[in-house]
Design a protein around this nucleic acid. Structure first.
Lengths: 359, 359
DNA sequence: CTGAAAGCGCTTACAG
DNA sequence: CTGAAAGCGCTTACAG
């Protein structure tokens, strides 16, 4: 038996050294070091008010010194709820998704929560079943639903039944304020109408998103109202429904530009479709903005990559993600009468080069 | 006391009914129903060979009937490892990120793993520390690293030290085959060179990505080699380094086009920079492709949105994500001599409208 | 305000 | 091939 190497000369002992190396420290280590029970440590971690201030401070001190963080898995098992937040989405725009993920993560920074993502297809026959399994198996703390997931009432009902908190992001208030981020797309549509009307356009067309998206309806409604304010009307022949995609936007614009009476301006329900309109205009030999003004919606990065730079309506997507996550996290510690976090966001016009006075 | 409602007429009893409703069934329910110990159920779940075939079948039958899935949290706690896979990234392209996430999720479908995402900044002073906390606290099963995370040797070393499996996606083999998806960007660069040389171009420029990205180097190297095959050379005056962004691509192209001797074609290290070249060409009054041919790299969705449609080199990003996740999952059950999954991906030329014969 | 016991739903040694 | 005991790292009742 070789004798153990003698320990190096003793340095002043610190709590950090009292924990075996190579093993993550646990609540038991903290309890031992602080001379309290693990239950008390647990109380400190969970911010229970039933701990003497002095005790709490001592425990906190040790926790800080050791750099202890409770194991989310063990905590979750005992809580019967995981420290995971799900994002369930079907939005086709990659930039939208990534920005929103960023925003959600902004809000989660410093917490012990993590983000689990779940692209899903509402049209799948096993859609609800899949979500059910996902949420139940992972015991998600809650979920965030951007459009059009946020508009699926079957989904909302399901989540409600299994008691899974959710925050919905949608163009109008579809539920109670504590569970909604409202983006007021209607206002954005109105801005677009005002802008084009003020430039002097009279023959103004609209290419809207699919009827299955609430936002498509809201943008169109706001646009109509905005025109009305200027004594204009969204005429039937200038009113097209498309699918929020480049191809459908192109097709709709093409048919608009091929008609006897051509619009001098088009407002599209999103930027993708605006680029479709670019293509149709080019093919028709029309110059943007000289012969045709175009205004989009979203302010996707595309808007600054194309020529001419696209004038569009911007939604602060990252902020929306952050706000949604904040709301979700707030549901756990809804302190006495603390007012619910802000729930509203307003789209704003970003003027670039794709719209001007009519010829 | 009101009497309980009499039970409806008894139906043939099934295992499903033997489990209390409103509570998720556990391994104990299965054990009881199958008349075995929970340990045996656990063996079946974990595909241990030490279970009699008959016993295994019986247990499986019950599991199927009940629709039981083990609690990943409890399993993780006992395993000392979570059923979570992390994706750590800093790639600025949203489409790249979303596609790769999709691919990873493709591979995870049907498993009990979930994907946790982590955008990170390699330049942050707390970068390594943050990752360390993230991986250790969540006890991640493993991580997937796209470029340029995959190229960070400090990160690789750290993950190795804490025993966290990782799969790296990179343009060249930076580590053992079981831990790599190799994208051979070099080959893509070569294709671009061949294509432009075959069209008859002789004055061909390159705008590369930043030196901090291995892919930038590889694409440039392949391009150089491809030119050499046609007896051409990447001349110094036609060789520019930029930053993989629209703005830096624009600036580089502008300087190329302002020079005394102008190139007739430009190969850019990615699509973003190609669009920068579009802008520079437009400003210089040059028509693409008549006066200037442009070839990009990535085949981002932008490539089909702009005009003219961008000829570019495509990487199957979603497949790469899927392959990486498959590799990571394979590390757990690397059966006897089972050959490691394929690790290679080849970029391919997608011909559209932005390149043609020189004038 | 504080703690000892039991439990969350699994798996890892250890026996047999 | 199978099982009873102990444990993963926390929290929830329940006492005091």
């Amino acid at each position: 038996m070789t004798a153990r190497k003698p320990k190096p000369a003793p340095r002043p002992p610190s709590a950090a050294e009292a924990v075996p190396r190579g093993r993550r420290s646990t609540i038991n280590d903290i309890a031992r070091l602080a001379g309290v029970s693990k239950k008390t440590v647990s109380r400190v971690i969970n911010e229970s008010p039933f701990v003497r201030a002095e005790t709490r401070e001592k425990v906190r001190e040790i926790i800080r010194e050791i750099g202890f963080t409770p194991d989310p898995q063990a905590r979750g098992l005992a809580f019967r709820r995981a420290f995971l937040i799900g994002m369930i989405y079907d939005n086709p725009s990659a930039q939208y998704i990534v920005n929103m993920q960023q925003g959600i993560l902004d809000a989660m920074r410093g917490t012990s929560f993590e983000l689990v993502i779940r692209p899903s297809d509402r049209a799948s026959p096993t859609f609800l079943e899949d979500i059910l399994h996902f949420v139940e198996r992972q015991k998600l703390f809650g979920v965030i639903l951007p459009p059009s997931m946020s508009e699926d009432e079957r989904l909302i009902r399901l989540l409600d039944e299994i008691d899974c908190p959710c925050v919905r992001i949608a163009s109008v208030a579809l539920g109670p304020r504590e569970t909604m981020i409202v983006t007021h797309d209607h206002t954005g549509g109105k801005s677009a109408a005002r802008y084009l009307a003020d430039l002097g356009h009279r023959k103004i067309a609209h290419i809207s998103g699919p009827a299955t998206f609430r936002s498509a309806h809201e943008r169109r409604r706001g646009f109509s109202e905005g025109l009305a304010e200027s004594g204009l009307k969204l005429e039937r022949k200038f009113d097209r429904e498309a699918g929020y995609t480049f191809e459908t936007g192109y097709a709709a614009a093409k048919s608009l530009l091929a008609a006897e009476e051509r619009p001098t301006a088009i407002f599209t329900g999103n930027d993708e479709m605006a680029l479709g309109a670019y293509k149709a205009a080019r093919e028709a030999g029309l110059d943007i903005p000289k012969d045709l003004s175009v205004v989009g919606f979203d302010d996707s990065p595309l808007a600054e990559r194309v020529w001419p730079l696209l004038t569009t309506i911007k939604l602060p997507i990252r902020d929306m993600g952050r706000m949604a996550a904040e709301k979700l996290l707030a549901t756990q510690k809804q302190r006495k009468g603390e007012p619910a976090a802000s729930a509203d966001v307003i789209p704003t016009l970003v003027v670039r080069d794709s719209a001007t006075k009519p010829a």
